[in-house]
Amino acid sequence: MKHFFFGKPESQLFGVHHRPRGIAKKPTRAVLICPPIGQEYIRTHWCLRLMANQLCRNGAHVLRMDYSGMGDSAGCLQDMRSLERWTEDLLTGIERLKELSGAGTVMLVGLRMGAMLAAQAAGRSNDVNSLVLWEPVEDGESYLKELRAMHRRMLDLWVCKMTTPNDDQVEEILGSRYSRSLIESISESKNDFSKIVQPQLIVVPKQPVVNFVHPVSGIQKVVLVDEEYNWNDLRSLETAWLRSQTAREIVGFSKQMFERLDQRKALAAPALVPDAVSDSRSDQDASPSVGVTA
């Protein structure tokens, strides 16, 4: 692992590069991990590190990074004004990963709000070959509603009567203070994965609330996993989120996606490969958690 800062000198981002050992696969495979935000970022750090190790052992260059105002990156969360800033961070991360690895295009693996940001970055970059959207946040308003409910519950059970800032400037939610404009930006955000042109793997717990559909046949694959989890349980607010089985499945699927993309020469240069996901379907029929809607 190599740790470093990158990006603009006045607002640098923190990153960790996992470089595969031995002879690199050609063409180069590269994965950018897009973490969640807020407390979910801290809780999922270890799980994403382990998954990065596994992806790396499978021959991929992996970059983990912290968004501006989070983790070890510069700035504080309260200074962030919109989701756009974090999408820009991911685009910077894509460029850095290409430089580090020599890859022409990269795969994005996004978890929770990281999946929403990954989808937005994919819509603005020609260098994203595919996406893995892990328990994605699809609707910012609903996401905020859930966080606020948990925050209110936390305050309600506090040892004494307690309030936190919530005015036209800032709002404190679960240990993070967001600017009002960022809150509005999150609230307005909505992802329509059917508009993403790159091959996409959506990983959700069984019985997802939303039925995913994509107009292009074979471009979207939905995997239903056994490891169900309630993100809004206050008792789990500070426990590490570990999903080893799902992480292993994602690593396996990503390997197959890379192989399909490689067959269609889509790794070295940007390209749309509609059947990159669906072609690998037959290999996965034995998996207990496969579901395809395309």
Binding site: F4, F5, F6, P9, E10, S11, Q12, F14, G69, D72, A74, G75, C76, D79
Partner: peptide, 14 residues
């Protein structure tokens, strides 16, 4: 590699 966090009043280096 160094960093200058924006949040600081003074310019610190990471």
């Amino acid at each position: 590699i160094q960093i200058n966090p924006q949040s600081n009043n003074n310019s610190s280096i990471e």
